[in-house]
Simulated assay, not measured.
Amino acid sequence: MNLSLILDVLPLLADGMILTAKLTTVSIILGAFIALPLSLMRTSSTVFLFVPVLVYTFVFRGTPLLVQLFLVYYGAGQIDWIRSSAAWVILREPFWCALIAFSLNHAAYTTEILRGGIRAVPFGDVEAAKALGMSYALRTRRVVLPAAIRLALPAYANEVVLMLKASSLASTITLMELTGSARKIVAQTFSPYEVFISAALIYLGITLVISHVFAKFERHLAKHQQRNSQTGNSRLAEMTATIRRPRLPGSVSR
């Protein structure tokens, strides 16, 4: 193994790394925006709301991402009305096709992750919000979603890492992201071992950054939850002490 070649290849993969980070970041953001309302529909008891979302998540989680990518990139061009519409301006570009496929796939998994978080919110918290007169929109925004996101965060962090690794499939539709750039350099240097080790090191570095960010965010939420719990316990202790305080003789009750 040529260590110097590994170090020399790392700067050559910079452009591919930037494209990988861009594709992954935008896919995650779009997927999260799509998944947020779909997760609420998925937990609804109305058939017309949760059944379409159930079918959507089943299809996208039950088929390979590579097949979905090929259907968007190659399949869209086979439909005449798409080729003659304004959508063809977007669907003929490999970057936008990869972004659409990755966003829809990520949204399907994120929807199910958030659904699990929403289902795990304590029933008493929801009932307390109803007792306070909160509307559905208000208690969803103030009670349900914050607790659900906190509960679903570890699983969502894993999904983000998986999305990063899945972005390597974009090289199959001529995108020169990190894996595509590595394959191009391999064709020039005939050194696949060193080049792909360099690419793997970059993937590991990005994964380390993602894991560190989510771990720090989880610790922040845990501190916030612990602080609120301590405040609630202290208030409860004060109320209990007040209730149990003995009444002095001759005192007038209020």
Rank of each mutant, 00 (worst) to 15 (best):
M1F: 09
M1Q: 08
L5R: 01
L5G: 04
I6Y: 00
V9I: 10
L10E: 06
L12V: 07
L12C: 06
L12P: 00
L13A: 08
A14G: 14
T20Q: 07
A21V: 15
K22F: 12
I29R: 05
G31Y: 06
G31T: 05
F33L: 15
I34K: 03
I34G: 03
I34R: 03
A35V: 11
L36I: 11
R42N: 12
R42Y: 08
S44Q: 07
V47H: 02
F48L: 15
V53G: 07
L54G: 15
T57C: 13
V59L: 15
F60K: 05
R61H: 03
T63K: 08
P64V: 07
P64G: 06
P64W: 06
L65C: 05
L69C: 03
V72C: 08
Y73T: 00
Y73K: 00
Y74N: 14
G77N: 05
Q78A: 12
I79A: 13
W81H: 03
I82V: 14
S84E: 15
A87F: 15
A87D: 12
V89D: 15
L91Y: 08
W96I: 00
W96V: 02
L99S: 06
A101Y: 01
A107P: 03
Y109W: 04
Y109C: 04
T110A: 09
T110L: 13
T111D: 05
R115K: 13
R115H: 02
G116D: 10
I118E: 11
A120C: 11
A120P: 14
V121M: 12
P122V: 01
D125P: 02
A128C: 06
A128H: 09
K130P: 01
L132F: 10
L132P: 10
M134I: 00
S135Y: 02
A137W: 08
R142F: 03
R142T: 06
V144E: 13
L145Q: 06
P146S: 04
R150D: 13
R150G: 10
P154R: 08
N158V: 12
E159H: 07
L162I: 12
L162K: 12
M163W: 02
K165C: 04
A166M: 04
S171K: 04
T174R: 02
M176E: 12
E177P: 11
L178C: 07
S181R: 02
A182S: 12
R183K: 15
K184P: 01
F190I: 01
P192S: 07
P192W: 02
Y193A: 09
E194V: 01
F196Q: 09
I197S: 02
L201R: 00
I202K: 01
I202S: 02
Y203V: 11
Y203T: 06
G205Q: 03
I206V: 14
I206A: 09
T207A: 12
V209N: 07
I210G: 03
S211T: 12
H220S: 10
L221V: 01
Q225F: 11
Q226T: 03
Q230S: 11
N233A: 15
L236S: 14
T240Y: 00
T240R: 13
T240M: 06
T242V: 12
T242C: 12
T242R: 15
L248D: 02
P249C: 09
S251E: 15
S253T: 10
R254F: 09
